[in-house]
Design a protein around this nucleic acid. Structure first.
Length: 464
RNA sequence: GGCCCCUUCGUCUAGAGGUCAGGACGUUGCCCUCUCAAGGCAGAAACACGGGUUCGAGUCCCGUAGGGGCCGCCA
């Protein structure tokens, strides 16, 4: 049978980075085996699930390029399916109605706790002869009292649980809704899921789920439990460690390639390789190379990777991507040769699209804003004659190109006995407003003769 | 507390009994250089601890410690 995997987020908030890594592993596994990747929305929590959250999840998945073959299915559409299966289990004697009230159960649990024991349902309703049909009831699975349940985990090997640890747990609530474990199993079974790849916080649920599969006489899928992503303090990654939602990273100027590459490498590896195209990830991804230990989220490495992709993607694509970021700053531009040139000289010093957009503004606005410290240090009386000489020489220059400009600067430094840095820095401040920029000749070439002279003249007025 | 999972540089990891324990991010120094980057070179930096098994253990076994997860009519 061909591989069928699923990603099943619950739409109770933003799509979390940890969840996305699980999605990536599932997606890669499906693509690697030419199988199917199924998207399922676990929205049975009616109070916390929102439509906005569903829309955001779908949006983020598309942005990351994690396309799905089936779905999105919603559990809320499938209630009758769960109920028909729970009824079937009652009929064949694998499940039973339980009339114990929540209050009663709560009291018994507290009693057990007082004795320092873990409460397990004692099977009060298990052998009820004639059920009182008018009282509300939950449905419990009849579970074995002895023996053990083995989970064959593709990442961790065999995990054994004692049957005594598992009581007759509820599969359908009094309100007719399935419990999580039951819904998951029915969904995975009816969707013919072959491999369940999910977070290791589900390990303890797995024996219960296996018991449901067995009661249903359904084939048990293969399980693979991936370790959690931790924050820098080794606690589970959460909002207090910084941004955790995919959308937040998009807004901070991260590229989807970088995020996918980074997340894929968190807990998975392929020798010493760090950079992977999506194609390579698909070819090389296997569960055997997924590690067992939890991984700490390392924002610096993500940033480095993002910078790598900014430097190495085609400049035209990067140029197109920064347009919305420029727009947010109130700068309207179109994708043209000039913008591509700007991106080309700026991108090796930017780690995010936001940085790139910020560093390009002096090319795109009419008037530069001087940084105060830079102005004070470099727009001085010593700079005046240099600016004046430059204006004179540049005015008569026909070819406003890097080699020509280099020549002119060479002449001026020689004549005045200066080092290049002594004139490059004041000019840089005059042209860009700051002390940091790409090579000054490249900047001048892109700015063009007119703009350069205009800004030098303005700098002279600023000094006087 | 019970059950379960995990443990190689600060971080991500390679390592499937014999390696000077390798790579990457970060970090330090140097080179390049008109600033800042990028790039190049060099360096510091790890097998949690204790017992076994073995000629030999990061690798296998058992403990200990530490971290994490689950113990709901939540998902």
């Amino acid at each position: 049978m061909s591989v069928r995997v699923r990603f099943a987020p619950s739409p109770t908030g933003a799509l979390h980075i940890g969840g996305v890594r699980t999605a990536i592993f599932n997606w890669l596994f499906a693509r690697h085996h030419s199988g199917k990747f199924i998207l399922r929305i676990e929205d049975t929590d009616r109070t916390r699930s929102t439509e906005e959250s569903i829309a955001e999840i779908l949006d983020a998945m598309k942005w990351l390029g994690l396309d799905w073959d089936e779905g999105p299915f919603r559990q809320s559409d499938r209630l009758s399916i769960y109920q028909s299966y729970s009824q079937k289990l009652i009929q064949v004697g694998k499940a039973y109605r339980c009339y114990c009230t929540q209050e009663e159960l709560e009291a018994r649990r507290k009693g057990a706790e007082k004795l320092g024991k873990v409460y397990r349902y004692e099977g009060t309703c298990r052998n009820l002869k004639s059920p009182t049909t008018d009282k509300p009831y939950a449905i419990r699975l009849t579970t074995p009292e002895v023996g053990s349940i083995e989970v064959q985990d593709l990442i961790r090997g065999t995990i054994t649980f004692d049957a005594k640890e598992i009581d007759d747990f509820i599969i359908q609530k009094t309100d007719g809704f399935p419990t999580y474990n039951f819904a998951v199993v029915i969904d995975d079974a009816t969707m013919d899921i072959t491999h369940v790849i999910r977070g290791d916080d589900h390990i303890a649920n797995t024996p219960k789920q296996i018991l449901i599969y067995e009661a249903l006489s359904q084939e048990i899928p293969k399980f693979a439990h991936v370790s959690t992503i931790l924050g820098s303090d080794k606690a589970k990654l959460s909002k207090r460690h910084g941004a955790t939602s995919v959308v937040a990273y998009r807004e901070m100027g991260y590229l989807p390639e970088a995020l996918v590459n980074f997340l894929a490498r968190l807990g998975w590896s392929y020798g010493d390789q760090e950079i992977f195209t999506k194609q390579e990830l698909i070819e090389k991804f296997t569960l055997e190379n997924v590690g067992k230990s939890p991984a700490v989220f390392n924002p610096e490495k993500l940033l480095w990777l993002n910078g790598w992709y900014i430097r190495n993607k085609p400049a035209e694509e990067i140029a197109e991507l920064i347009i919305p970021f420029l727009k947010k700053k109130g700068i309207q531009v179109i994708l043209d040769e000039r913008l591509i040139k700007i991106v080309n000289i700026l991108r090796e010093r930017a780690k995010t699209l936001v940085e790139l957009a910020n560093s390009s503004d002096y090319f795109l606005v009419d008037e530069v804003k001087y940084e105060e410290a830079a102005r004070k240090k470099f727009l001085t009386n010593e700079a005046l004659p240099i600016f004046e000489a430059l204006i004179e020489r540049l005015s008569s220059l026909d070819k406003f190109t890097v080699p020509e400009l280099q020549k002119i600067f060479g002449e001026i430094t020689e004549k005045r006995g200066l080092k290049l840095v002594q004139i490059a820095q004041p000019v840089r401040v005059a042209l860009t407003g700051g002390t940091v920029s790409p090579g000054i000749f490249e900047v001048m070439e892109i700015l063009g003769k007119e703009k350069v002279i205009e800004r030098l003249e303005r700098a002279i007025r600023e000094i006087s």
